[in-house]
Amino acid sequence: MFGCARVIVFSACLTAAGALAQEKAAHGHMHMTQKDMRSELDFPPPMRQHMLSQMRAHLEALQAILAALGAGDPGKAGDIADKRLGLGAPGAAACDPSAKGDDPMAAMMGAHMPPEMREMGMAMHSSASAFAAVAAKARETGDLRPALAALATVTENCAACHSAFKLR
């Protein structure tokens, strides 16, 4: 179990480092030799604020998932992922162009998000749902390694989108 704890701490450090790098890049602190090749998105102000709020909520969910795994509770980690990041999470509708609903913000986001961004968002939500299923099995087996591997796929999808897009 000690090895799993190190993996969880390492994952948390990588997530924090990635968030810090994203924050520095967003504020122009990149090295002069690096060119930011991400697609710049110009969303309406209410959508921009909503998007940023959703990204913070995703990061908070990842932190709660890591805390639950660190406490040896993969079932709780899976529940958090399912409710806050999975395909049934409130923010997932904005990534699904076929979703029908009464949420005007999700409709606005769906209308303004490039198709590639929606695809990346759906991949993240889908991988979070897959993680939830794997974490439920880890509750029975006690082996966190498959859950950690599934969680790495979730954060890989997050990183891919943040590497491809930035908000103006």
Rank of each mutant, 00 (worst) to 15 (best):
G75E: 09
S39N: 13
H31W: 07
V7W: 10
A132K: 00
T33D: 03
A138I: 03
A136W: 03
D143V: 01
A16P: 01
L87K: 04
S129Y: 13
A135W: 03
S11M: 10
L14Y: 06
F165H: 00
L14S: 14
F43W: 07
A106T: 02
A132S: 01
A67G: 14
A16F: 13
A64S: 14
G142A: 03
A94F: 08
S127M: 10
A130V: 03
M108E: 00
R48T: 15
I80W: 05
M51E: 13
H27F: 13
S39A: 13
F2K: 15
A130Q: 07
A152D: 13
M51N: 01
M124S: 05
A111F: 12
H29N: 07
C13S: 12
S53P: 04
G91L: 05
A149Q: 10
F2P: 14
A71F: 14
A123R: 07
N157M: 13
D103P: 11
F165P: 00
F43M: 15
F131G: 02
Q63F: 02
L69N: 04
Q49D: 12
D96Y: 05
H58M: 14
C95A: 15
A147P: 04
M124W: 09
A64E: 12
Q54N: 14
H27V: 13
R145L: 10
V154E: 03
D73L: 08
L62E: 14
M37R: 13
S163R: 01
A133R: 09
H27W: 10
M37A: 11
E116F: 03
A5D: 06
T141G: 11
S163I: 00
A99L: 02
G78H: 05
M117Q: 13
P114K: 11
F131H: 08
C95F: 15
A150P: 05
A160Y: 01
F2L: 15
G3K: 10
A77H: 02
L20V: 06
K24S: 13
Q49C: 02
R38F: 01
A150R: 05
E40P: 09
A21P: 07
A106S: 12
T141S: 14
R118D: 09
E40N: 15
H162F: 06
D82T: 06
A81G: 08
F43A: 02
V134C: 05
L151Q: 00
M37E: 15
G28E: 03
A152P: 04
H31S: 06
V7T: 14
K35D: 09
S11F: 12
S98N: 04
L144P: 00
D143C: 00
E23C: 08
A133W: 04
K24D: 15
